[in-house]
Design a binder for these strands. Structure first.
Lengths: 201, 201
DNA sequence: CTACCAACTGACCGCTTGACCAGTCAACAT
DNA sequence: ATGTTGACTGGTCAAGCGGTCAGTTGGTAG
């Protein structure tokens, strides 16, 4: 029966709850989400949520921490390259953009947490990303791939800001671009434009 | 007694409620805010909230519409200049940035509404801003003030994105910039850098 | 076999919440 | 005076919420 048991391994409920909570929290944020809905989506009783996580708040932070951890694993590889060529930076940006594209739930949860308060843990996540990305950019600047007429940190922020805005405001972008009488570019074209901005001229 | 009455003019309660609701909603969003808290802050009874606005939802949209209207009044002047010189664009950006600086509540409410659902009205707000800003940028491009190697709408989005990111992610910015071993620039320096990016070289 | 523990359930509780309403009061028109 | 209207209050209510708990199950160690 060992094989049959492994279909529902230990802590299967816990994982199901985390996944369900992520979806529900992404939809409506902390206050707008009901424990009952999470339990129903996970297919478990409501009491189990309190058994595994202490309460709503514990579940909320658990979901956040899991999302942060996944993000770091996904992205840190792209910014820790040892070889450096003209494709290094676009590749890193592409990875960053793709992560959010593939994890819309994580994207929304991140936004929710931005509004909820200090969230020291979120800060540490972004810090550890910066710690890895800044050296890459500095090297790219020194190698002549990126413009050097503005601070390294700012170059990073520009790329980050544009990707973020690009993702969570397609609506507004679309308006502006339609009004300009132009077509809506795709992700790859957009990355090209970012490079246009931060490349050494 | 007309004078004494004018201290509490008609609809004084309504205004007080709107102001209180704005503060409370900005703090915790729609679901996290309690009608009782709004009433207490406004110094009125809870029933009055239902009398003036139909319910919680009505109050929420009223607050949003008021914020949008204020925003448009504040900003539309800066993007509707008839004269055009090298200071026109920085001035417009400065106005845009200043509005959000001076209205942190509106800033947060805007973010909340971004997450809450369709919010067709918000879309129309950003659309009407784009409608006014795009012509200004196009003229500035033709006059040789701005770079012409990317779509007009994109230039607008770049400026908007950077300001937004600059405002609601000082923490992340700060990390990146500290790690880069640089100082945190002030608003004016930052606007300078934006211009550096979008100016014709 | 027994004892034990963690996973898990379902019914339940007390409190908060948004909404509702009967009634008061002041202003104003007739 | 009187009727009307709208701002405003305080008490009240049903619903829905997060949290609790006694109890069941199934695997595992002794």
């Amino acid at each position: 029966m060992k094989a049959a048991r492994s279909v529902v391994p230990l802590h299967a409920g816990r994982e199901a709850i985390l996944q369900a909570a992520r979806i529900e929290f992404a939809k409506a944020g902390f206050y707008g989400t009901k424990m009952r809905d999470i339990a129903q989506r996970a297919g478990v009783s409501q009491g189990l949520l309190h058994h595994h996580f202490q309460g709503k708040e514990g579940l909320w932070t658990a979901v956040g921490e899991q999302a942060s951890a996944e993000f770091l694993v996904y992205v840190s590889g792209a910014v820790a390259q040892d070889t450096l060529d003209s494709e290094s930076i676009p590749t890193a940006i592409r990875t960053y953009l793709q992560y959010w594209r593939e994890h819309p739930d994580a994207f929304r949860i991140n936004l929710w947490r931005l509004l909820d308060g200090p969230t020291d843990e979120r800060k540490s996540r972004s810090r550890s990303l910066s710690e890895r990305a800044v050296p890459l950019i500095k090297r790219a600047q020194q190698a002549g791939f990126l413009r050097t007429d503005m601070p390294t940190g700012l170059v990073l922020c520009i790329a980050g800001a544009l990707v973020q805005f690009w993702l969570h405001s397609r609506i507004e972008m679309q308006d502006a671009i339609e009004i300009g009488g132009e077509e809506m570019p795709d992700d790859e074209t957009f990355i090209g434009h970012i490079m246009q901005l931060i490349t050494k001229t």
